[in-house]
Design a protein around this nucleic acid. Structure first.
Lengths: 221, 221
DNA sequence: CGACTTCTTGAGGAGACTCAAGGGTGGTGG
DNA sequence: CCACCACCCTTGAGTCTCCTCAAGAAGTCG
């Protein structure tokens, strides 16, 4: 169990990653160093997220992770992650599937960034964010507190702050969503989904090809 | 073992994916339906690639896969993929790591698409492509045959064909690379890397936390 | 050799970026 | 409690890049 303060960096791009972390509470952000040398916010992490997976494939961390709010984390040593593949193949397969979801999400983001108008991209961001916030904070209905500033969101969407302001203004004028101070209010969720034009994808949580529970018990014996 | 002709579609976005495939020979391309309804080429697959992983996480395929050239594939039934997690945890862990590489690659592509100029993005594309072509065709040195047309590459880079032509013209004028007909010639690999500004990342193929061979033998017994 | 596809190139216009100034908002100290 | 200050957000004008469209050139196939 490890606590980090607002603004604190958990690890920095290029460092050797000591372990994985599960984010238990708070908001964190991954940033990567862009070609121009500036850090750009790339992904926000919500409670329940597993941090550090992309860096597994490299000898140095691919991203920096900093706390947007105060946060609590539980470290997952790499060897116990490795043990998981041995002892719990079913869980390993589920994690594999989740990482494919993440990959598909990135593909969709890339596709939107190629074809999309700014308003659509902003709408897509809030559409996906709302989904994730609801998963991490199930009591969320139509409004939630967003601890990010405009620069963060502009980076995440891939536009400049000025464009973001214009897009937010339009979305507010069309009564789709509002974002004042730290509070995001979804006024018309249907309209948001329509503007976002995200492909509807039905997740598979438990596939027929997963190793059986029996196999799991057998190999962990 | 399955053979597909040039232009043939192996599976289409939205279908239920019958199995995974290993591409043994030929070039294939993944396309996803953009927000405007047009398909956009998203990734090229070279011999040795495993096709269909992203669709594992969803009940319908997330992408269409078509043959750019004639191609040969070996189907991998899903149940044997599941069996792999049970019987060969070490291999499963390696596949997990490879999928994290793929994810990181997408993150880099996204970052470039946010910050990059057209010439840089084109250079980055050819830089990464050269790396992959060399892995699939080890005899490749400074030139290779590229069966894609400009529209494919423009989609992959995320620009319009006109911009691509301009960028290629500049790269040719600066003696960095040439692409006439179906032949790509790398004139100055150093310069290409400099223009591309891709972060140098050192891959990990065999991490200390992987399940041991012993464990693998034990659980497959 | 001719018809077709694919690629290149140019001009015009829309959208995005830069920069700078004005207005809120929150926090701090008197 | 109020005033001040600092930071963040918004907004606008000017510039530039990128996109759209269309026509000409080059290459490909029958």
């Amino acid at each position: 169990m490890r606590a980090v303060d607002r603004g604190e960096t958990l690890w920095r791009q290029g460092q050797r990653l000591p372990s994985l972390y599960i984010l238990l509470d708070g908001w964190m952000a991954s940033t990567i160093r862009g070609a121009d040398g500036c850090d750009l916010t790339f992904k926000v992490h919500l409670p329940g997220d597993l941090l550090g997976l992309p860096s597994l494939a490299f000898s140095a961390a691919t991203e920096s992770v900093t706390a947007i709010t105060g946060a609590q984390l539980r470290p997952i040593p790499l060897h116990s992650f490795g043990h998981l593949f041995e002892a719990y193949p079913r869980i390993a397969a589920m994690m594999f599937v989740v990482s494919q979801q993440e990959r598909t999400l990135l593909m969709d983001r890339l596709a939107v960034s190629y074809t999309g108008i700014v308003v659509q991209r902003v709408a897509a961001f809030f559409h996906l964010l709302l989904e994730r916030v609801r998963r991490s904070f199930p009591e969320t209905t139509y409004a939630f507190s967003l601890p990010l500033d405009r620069q963060h969101v502009a980076d995440l969407v891939g536009v400049k702050v000025a464009q973001l302001a214009a897009a937010l203004k339009q979305l507010h004028a069309d009564n789709v969503l509002g974002w004042t101070g730290r509070t995001v209010t979804i006024a018309d969720e249907e309209a948001l989904a329509v503007i976002a034009q995200m492909p509807r994808r039905e997740l598979v949580q438990d596939a027929h090809w997963f190793p059986t529970i029996e196999g799991e018990e057998e190999s962990s014996r």
